[in-house]
Design a protein around this nucleic acid. Structure first.
Lengths: 232, 232
DNA sequence: AAGTGTGAAGCTATTCACAGCC
DNA sequence: GGCTGTGAATAGCTTCACACTT
């Protein structure tokens, strides 16, 4: 029953530096595989996985090869095994304690995002500076005052802070949560944050994505419209 | 008064293929420059811009050099000029018509995100499948029924659709909006979407970002904790 | 002296292609 | 025969370093 029975998983010190893009793809593979698992699919090839995740067979195999060897030549991969392996690699076997800083529109939307909880990310605390918001509750958590932050973060052993405050307060919030021992930050504020070494930071910047679309639309058709000099 | 007066902007056909990462950084530069502009800063160097955006001076110069030459040697860049140039490159001189598909938690949060409007992205239509939501209004838009989608998208000449529906409905929504002439899609559903050539697609997947943090935390300290064999 | 613009070098990520195993 | 695992080749992105301009 142990998913690792017949596989070799790389020892920690074997693991070469793995790129962000590889880690991102692993998440994507995992989501698909979990879905296939509930559909009762037992096995699939790198090519099938790739096609359904928007990448290539070689890429899938390379991504996995950083962590061990999980497939069977001629057969492909066991869905159940890969799910277990990926959950292990991504650190999803445990429960992560998350705090949400900022109970504005985005914060509240994230609070209700059941998907996070399904993956093991539990929002155990919510903070807001606005006294009008303190005491409100939703999805089983009560909004606490900003001044409680350091005490509660430490006491609840929060692992990850989701920063959903205005850009101008974001750096000071980050300094405080890092000071309180948080080592992972998911930032929704559209500003550059500085964190000390040893703290992981990821940014979600929706304006950047929209502007990338704007760029693409404003410049679309260039290739097809381009004037190619007539030439025999 | 024309910002381009003393600069040379690359002609469309000169523009080499520009990477997604470059375009993303241009957005980030623009945000900072806009802020500096309101503070009355007139000029800055690539090094200063880089430091405040988390990149390097050489990167800033290379990013800009894909589009023309905008700086003055020995002096740096004019903030006002760069703002104008970047807005032009990113296609932000015009108003973009956006439709929001899905008035769930994320959808509603985005609806209130004033930041989008400030950059020229106007949410002109909102759709939801749930009859209970149809007719509700917020931020100056009324939620319309799903069945109105094709008609309204075409009539209002919507440029961009924000897809904020559950993963299982996302592909069919995309097929419909693309059929109605939309050529840019910002997808919040955690699933791989297929779009025909000529349609720009960007994904925002918060679970992927959280899992990247989980990976980083679960594997952190490896470098420092690694056992280095004792040796002289 | 300060700081840009840019070819060249260096580095990282992706794709190829094929030997090896099921 | 089908499909993995992986070195080698390629492509793409970032950094270097310096000639050139103000």
């Amino acid at each position: 029953m142990n998913a690792f029975t017949s596989t070799r998983v790389a020892m920690a010190q074997d693991v070469k530096r793995v790129s962000d893009s590889t880690v991102g793809r692993l998440s994507i593979y995992l989501r698909l595989l979990t879905e296939l698992q509930t559909e009762g699919v037992a096995t699939l090839s790198s090519g099938e996985l790739a096609a359904r995740c928007g990448t290539t067979a070689a890429q899938v195999r390379k991504d996995l090869s950083s962590f061990g060897t999980f497939g069977k030549r001629g057969l492909g991969y066991s869905v159940a095994e890969l799910v277990a392996v990926l959950r292990g690699i991504l650190g999803l076997e445990r429960r992560w304690r998350v705090a949400l800083i900022g109970a504005g529109r985005i914060g509240v939307a994230l609070l209700g995002y059941q998907d996070f909880r399904d993956q093991g990310f539990y929002i155990d605390a919510v903070f807001d500076k606005d006294p009008q918001k303190v005491g409100l509750s939703g999805h089983g958590v009560v909004v606490q005052g900003d001044e409680e932050m350091e005490r509660v973060l430490a006491a609840s052993e929060i692992d990850i802070a989701i920063v959903a405050v205005p850009a101008e307060s974001a750096q000071s919030v980050v300094d405080r949560v890092v000071g309180a021992g948080v080592r992972g930050i998911l930032n929704f504020a559209p500003t550059k944050l500085n964190v000390p070494a040893g703290v992981a930071l990821k940014n979600v910047n929706m304006a950047v994505e929209l502007e990338a679309l704007s760029y693409a639309l404003a410049n679309s058709g260039r290739r097809s419209r381009r004037v190619v000099p007539a030439r025999g």
